[in-house]
């Protein structure tokens, strides 16, 4: 079970300020994990930090609830929260992505924290729906949270799963959508039109809550509403892949941020100042 530590221990306090500091702790750890490689999935943590800190602090119950990280490269944000969740040793974080490490950069069966293999985009919501159905069949109180990305909405399977979950009334299923408008080839909005996201999900029979994904108070309220909904629910978090790290150069590639030299020192200093 979760150790009660200062920041992610906000599950107990629920204080917005603690959750915000937890989000910056996730960012700080992500910079440390990515720095030795010189590049990596840092933008995904910068965008989803408040969303995931809110989840882990306010809603997620390790050992009871389940977490699916559908875009497998987002596993870094789950690793970053792993120590407080009691799911991995903090020392292990330094092995992120290195040869032979269990902390592979794209989540696999050996990944602590997440419950299924992600990475082949569009599959995670189906897995989450299956876990939610299994909980229902077993009469379990567990809830299933699925982290998805907006680019992933391009995959048809997401909508198969959306129909399936709504048809079966899986109200123990909550999607956290990191809508950071970023995918490999550029902004999602420049590649295809996934909007209107909330209206799509509502028309599929879901409760959809569209919020500023860096506003912790709004996220906490949205999570509460999603959990109270009598049907599957999605929290659409509008985010940026450069949020919370002002030292990043203008125009950094949010999908795969390069970070080296003095920039690492600046990033660590900026985040440490906010966390401490």
């Amino acid at each position: 079970m979760a150790k009660q530590l200062p920041y992610l221990g906000g599950m107990m306090s629920g204080r917005v300020r603690d959750i915000q500091r937890s989000a910056d702790l996730l960012r700080l750890r992500a910079v440390r994990m990515v720095a030795p490689h010189g590049f990596g999935y840092l933008g995904q943590v910068l965008s989803s930090a408040e969303l995931m800190a809110s989840l882990f602090s306010r809603a997620f119950r390790p050992g009871v609830d389940e977490l699916v990280v559908s875009p497998g490269h987002y596993i870094i944000v789950a690793y970053a929260a792993g120590p407080e969740l009691g799911l991995l040793d903090e020392a292990l974080l330094s092995t992120y992505g290195v040869d032979g490490s269990s902390l592979e950069a794209i989540g696999t069966e050996s990944s602590p924290v997440a419950d299924v293999t992600g990475g082949s985009l569009g599959q995670g919501l189906s897995s989450a729906a299956g876990l939610a159905l299994a909980a229902r069949l077993r009469g379990s109180e567990g809830r299933v949270f699925a982290l998805l990305s907006d680019g992933e909405l391009e995959e048809g399977q997401v909508w198969e799963a959306a129909m399936f979950a709504a048809h079966r009334g899986l109200d123990n299923l909550v999607v956290l959508l990191d809508a950071n408008d970023s995918q490999v080839d550029g902004p999602v909005s420049s590649i295809t039109t996934v909007e209107p996201i909330a209206a799509k999900w509502e028309s599929f029979g879901w409760t959809a809550i569209d919020v500023d994904g860096h506003d912790v108070a709004a996220l906490v309220e949205a999570l509460d509403e999603a959990l109270a909904a009598q049907r599957p629910a999605i929290v659409i978090a509008r985010t940026s892949t450069s949020h919370g790290l002002s030292c990043l150069p203008e125009g950094a590639d949010g999908h795969f941020i390069k970070i080296s030299g003095a920039l690492i020192d600046d990033a660590l200093a900026e985040l440490a100042a906010r966390v401490d």
Partner: peptide
């Protein structure tokens, strides 16, 4: 009927759901 799941014409979702059910002992 309680253990029968219509997965509809959506084979991708059906397989992923089945995998998740198997993870939980079914």
């Amino acid at each position: 009927p309680d253990r029968f799941i219509h997965a509809a014409m959506a084979e991708a979702n059906m397989i992923s759901v089945a995998g998740a059910l198997a993870r939980r002992g079914f």
